[in-house]
Structures are given as structure tokens and as C-alpha cells.
Write a protein that binds this DNA or RNA. Structure first.
Lengths: 344, 344
DNA sequence: GTGAAAGCGCTAACAC
DNA sequence: GTGTTAGCGCTTTCAC
């Protein structure tokens, strides 16, 4: 621990060979069995660990890939991560995950630092995307694939889903099972998902001939369950007077679960008094009590596709930007079961 | 994207200075304002990003720290991660998270690769620790601090908790609130936490003068909610005949939540028919319905302490191994509320 | 099969 | 204040 770390020269010396031979022996290149044996022994004896930095500098790659997300606490990212990890490691790479703040400049920062030297490629799923970030990503010295919707004209590998349509699925389901007055708890509108889902909700209401009522939408401070509880307190509180909501669509599972939490606290029964539908269909949805009906946005599949895209670009840098889109679908669970004696 | 990446020499050339001056200008060392200006401009124009690999090789450090866990899906690690991240970034380092498999050799592998070149230090919280891993950790070329219990005699910085006593807290609480027959759902016994908690349970039963009944303990396949559900199916199923359990202690929150899931599926009411207590007091415990009574093991504090220890060792490599222990405490929520008409 | 030597991109003496 | 140069630890031609 205190002695200077052994380098290749120490190993070579101990083995009585040149450092070139030592390197070859260790890396399985052409070398006599005898040399290999002696070098191996020397390396073990010295507890030699090759310096990855030096190796990467010489080789020009690190065999590491990075996945950057805004909030590791969100299970949707965990699911993506698992999917990414499995394809990436099959491709011989190791995965590092980093958590950026919500700030785009912080994200851009991370991209810069990661992309030059510490990783051979990057998958990023940012909540907020501005032009500066797109520029940074496009100019990054290593391939970047983004999970999420990009501004028009950005030429980057990307995998996205149609969360607008996803919200539509939720609304249609609720209407179809007898709900009449649907509230919407969204995340911040300056985020990409927040924006799409907002449009999706308006669209769905319109399509179903329902008048949008201003007070039926509440914007949470972020995509966490705490913010969901907070927002639900507002939304539900407002409706104590103005007439009852009988359903809420939440922009993700965390918000949905926060909403249920608050609804129960208010003495509302879920789903009897209030149906709740989330989005992302994370493990949380399955686990929760009651089970949370949720719109799957194919997080695992998006992760898998993103990883595939990245690997492909790594081996074939020249080709044009790909764009894959994963369709949403609804997973029905207890939180949106039809109200018992439907009052229609 | 396709042109060769600009290096310092390109920048220096464009700016019309030597590469040494360029380096100095960029790094805020002594340089004339005029030089700084020209170099800055050139760098921006070329979209120059310094190569971290080369820089690290020269400097001998990366300003990166790593946190390795077995299962990123467990919220307890998310909490540790947040805590670690905040102290580490205050110290000027960036945090990388890697997910190792459950396998100790895989973990050792990761340590090897991480510890030579990609990170200046490492925090690791492994479920399983064997001698080979301890040896690897001790010999690692960069400082390592482990969150968790080490075998006797290992000289590594470590922060631990007393989860044995933690289980005792849970048992005592349940007994105190009128429960009589307590089951235990543990994780694998070949893991460090599994082992401690097993001992803790036996100890607590003994201390309270309760005869341990073999069938009252069930070992889940791992520390996930799915495994918890599975184990609960076993445990609860067994007791359909042999007489009712009125409480379950689970070795972590995930197992606890899986247990509740299964209990409800069986038509048991929680807490009326069955009280459930988890461990780790993660955000999940607070969020769940009903709220999950849980033994806090101070995950955030453990993370914070681990990060502090690592930073200290980084600046002061010589000193002896530290060892800090964080005390557990109970957080009572709805899942263990006294049964209504207690049948005693 | 093996050794000598060049060089990956950068920083830090060291001279000027 | 600036340029020249050595060298971080490694891999890889290139001769032998």
C-alpha cells in the first residue's frame, strides 16, 4: 500500500526480460511459454495491476461506457441501466453511471469531462435539453446516444417513445372504465417529458370531447414522489370544493405513488373514490398497494436499443444518425379498477 | 465528429504559441493576458477538449471516485450514493457508480480495474465478503473504504452499523405492541448482512424468552422484493396450517414490501392480521401503503462517513485504518400498528 | 521470440 | 512570460 506501485518495468526486471516481452506475455501476444510463465509469476508476486490510464492513452480507448441520468433515484433509470448494462457488457465494455444534476449546464459539463478520456461512448437521458446541450452532445469527441426527444434537426442517435400517445392511452382507459373527471399531475413543463405529456393530455381531452378545466392540472416541482404528494395536495385540495375528481393521470410512477399517498391521507379510497394511473411501468407500479396501473414506455427496451445503437456506432462511426422509437402500452392494475357502484 | 480530435498542439499552433504556454493558459497558470486570450480563442474555435487520460497519466490522479454496489435497484444504495456524492463533490471529485454482480470474484475484478487508473479511490458496499476480496481490497493501489462488516483483522477503513441490534429493535417493538408470534424473512445467509441479521434474530428471541420455531424463519433468494414475495409465500403458506404468525420482520425494506404484497394477496390485512417491519428505512418505507415501520441503519450517514473517510485518507495516506459505526434506530409507521382488538 | 525505441497527449521543471 | 524538453506507463512497430 505504501511502496510505490509496481509498473511493467518492475515486472520485466523481476522476470529478467524486456518490458516489451513483459507486455506481450501479459496480453497474450506472441511469447515463448517460458517467458509467459516467468512474467506471470513476477506479476503475481509484485501484485502488479496494469495502469489503465497509460494503457488507454496508448490504445486510444478505455472499454468503458457511461450512462448519465438526472436522478438515480427514479426506478425508470434503474431499469434502463440494467438493460444497458447487459448488452454493453456482452460487448466487452464496462458501464459507469453518473448522476448529473437537473441543470443542463451541469450535464454539458459532465459530458465534456466524460467524453474525453474516461469513456468511449455515452448514453444520456436528460430531462431538459437546450440548444447548448445538443451542441455539446453533437460535438462530443465520443459517440453519444440520447434517450429522449431531441429538438428538430439534431443529428444524434436517439431512442424515444411517444409519451404523448401514452397519456392518451391512460385517459382513454379511465374514460372507458367509467371515470368522468380526470385530473393531471405533470412534472415541470420545461422538461422534455413534461412538455410532451402536457400536450398529450390536452390532445386526449380534446379528442374525447372533454372540456379542459384549468384547475384540473397541477405541475409538480419535479418528477419525484415527494413532489407528487405536494402536487396532489394542491390538486385534491382544490377539488374539495369545486367538485370531485374521480381520476388522476400522473406523468410518471413516482408522481402517481405520491398522489396515492396523499389521496389516502385525505381519506379517499383508491381506486373506489379516485383512480390513479402512472407512467413508466416501473417495478414500483407492480409492487405498490394497490397495484398501480401504468403506461409502459418500454424503459428496458429503450435502454437496450440505446446500448445497441452505441455499440454499432462504435464499430461503424461513419454512418448517419439512427432514430428508434418504442411504442407505449397500458398495463392495468388495481389502482384504476372501475368504481364499485359507478355513479353513472 | 469525423476530423481527428484536436490536441493541445493544434491549439498551440492556432494560437501561435508553444504547447507549454497553451497548457499554462488553459490551466490558469502564469501567462500573459494576451496569451491567455489567444489560446482561449483557439481552443474554443477548435472545440478543444483536453484528454483526461493523458492528463491523468501525467498528474497521477483522476479526480474521480467510485462507488460500487451489488444492486443499484436497492434504494438503500441510492441513499448512500446521494450522501456520498454530496461530500465527494464538495471535495472536488466526481463520483462514478458501478454495479457489480453478486459474485465476489466479479467484485474483485471490478476493484482491480477501477482501482488502477480510473479512480483515485473507491467506496464499496458488498453483500458478500470473502478473504480473497479482502485481500484484493487491502492491496488495491488506491484507497478503499468499505461500508459493511469486515472479517476480524482486516485493516481497511470501514463504516458499519449494528444490524444485529437493529433486528432486536424490531422484535422488541413488535412484542411491545402485543404481537406474539414473529416470523423472520432474511436474505441469503452467506451475505454479511444476512448473517448478522440471522444472529440478531436468534439473539432477540432468546433475550425475550421466546422459543425459536424452525418454520418461522425463511431465507429469501436475495434482497429483492420479488424474493421477498416468494419467501413470504413459503412462510405464510406454511402457517396456514401450523397456526398464525402475527408479525414478520424482514431483513430489508424490499423484502418487507414483497412480504406485504404477498400477505395482502393472501387476504391478510396489514397491520391488523400481520404486522411487518423492514430494515434500512428507505424512501420506499415512507412511501408505501401502509407506511412501513423500519429499522433505520443510517444509510445516508454511513455514506457520508464513508466519503469523509475516503477524502481524509486521500489527503493523509499514512495513518491507520479508521472504523466508524452508526447506530440503528426504529422508525414506526402504520405497518406495525397494534392489532385492533388485540386477541390477548 | 525478443529487445530497443518511438510515441499516445499532457504537465512541469528548467533555462532563457 | 515563454519555449524546450523530459517523462507519466504502456503498446507496438521495427530490427535482429
Amino acid at each position: 500500500m505504501s511502496s510505490p506501485r509496481p509498473t511493467l518495468v518492475a515486472v520485466a526486471e523481476l522476470a529478467g526480460v524486456s518490458i516489451a516481452s513483459a507486455s506481450r506475455a501479459l496480453n497474450g501476444m506472441t511469447a515463448s511459454p517460458r517467458t509467459v510463465e516467468r512474467v506471470r509469476r513476477a506479476a503475481r508476486e509484485l501484485n502488479y495491476i496494469p495502469d489503465a490510464t497509460a494503457r488507454s492513452l496508448k490504445l486510444g480507448h478505455t472499454l468503458q461506457l457511461a450512462f448519465a441520468v438526472d436522478d438515480v433515484g427514479n426506478p425508470v433509470y434503474v431499469e434502463m441501466m440494467r438493460a444497458i448494462e447487459s448488452v454493453v457488457s456482452a460487448g466487452g465494455y464496462r458501464l459507469q453511471v453518473s448522476s448529473t444534476g437537473a441543470d443542463t449546464s451541469e450535464t454539458a459539463d459532465l459530458v465534456r469531462s466524460l467524453s474525453r478520456g474516461y469513456a468511449d461512448g455515452l448514453i444520456i437521458s436528460p430531462l431538459r435539453i437546450d440548444d447548448a446541450l445538443v451542441k455539446e452532445l453533437t460535438q462530443a469527441p465520443v459517440p453519444v446516444v440520447v434517450i429522449g426527444k431531441l429538438p428538430e434537426g439534431a443529428s444524434l442517435d436517439t431512442v424515444m417513445t411517444d409519451s404523448r400517445a401514452g397519456v392518451g392511452l391512460a385517459v382513454k382507459h379511465l374514460l372507458g372504465s367509467g371515470r368522468r373527471r380526470i385530473g393531471f399531475i405533470n412534472g415541470p413543463l420545461d422538461t422534455t417529458p413534461g412538455k410532451s405529456r402536457s400536450e398529450g393530455f390536452d390532445e386526449a381531452m380534446l379528442a374525447n370531447g372533454i372540456e379542459r378545466i384549468a384547475g384540473d392540472v397541477e405541475i409538480a416541482a419535479d418528477f419525484t414522489s415527494e413532489a407528487g404528494t405536494e402536487a396532489a395536495r394542491e390538486l385534491l385540495g382544490r377539488h374539495l370544493d369545486s367538485g370531485p375528481l374521480d381520476a388522476v393521470v400522473a406523468a410518471n410512477d413516482l408522481l402517481a405513488v405520491g398522489t396515492i399517498h396523499e389521496a389516502l391521507r385525505c381519506g379517499l379510497r383508491v381506486p373506489e373514490d379516485l383512480a390513479v394511473v402512472g407512467m413508466d411501468d416501473t417495478s414500483l407500479a407492480e409492487l405498490f398497494n394497490p397495484g398501480l396501473t401504468s403506461v409502459s414506455l418500454g424503459s428496458a427496451e429503450r435502454g437496450r436499443e440505446a446500448a445497441r445503437l452505441l455499440l454499432e456506432r462504435l464499430t461503424e462511426p461513419g454512418r448517419g444518425a439512427s432514430r428508434v422509437v418504442v411504442d407505449p402500452f397500458l398495463v392495468v392494475r388495481g389502482s384504476s379498477a372501475p368504481a364499485h357502484g359507478g355513479d353513472l
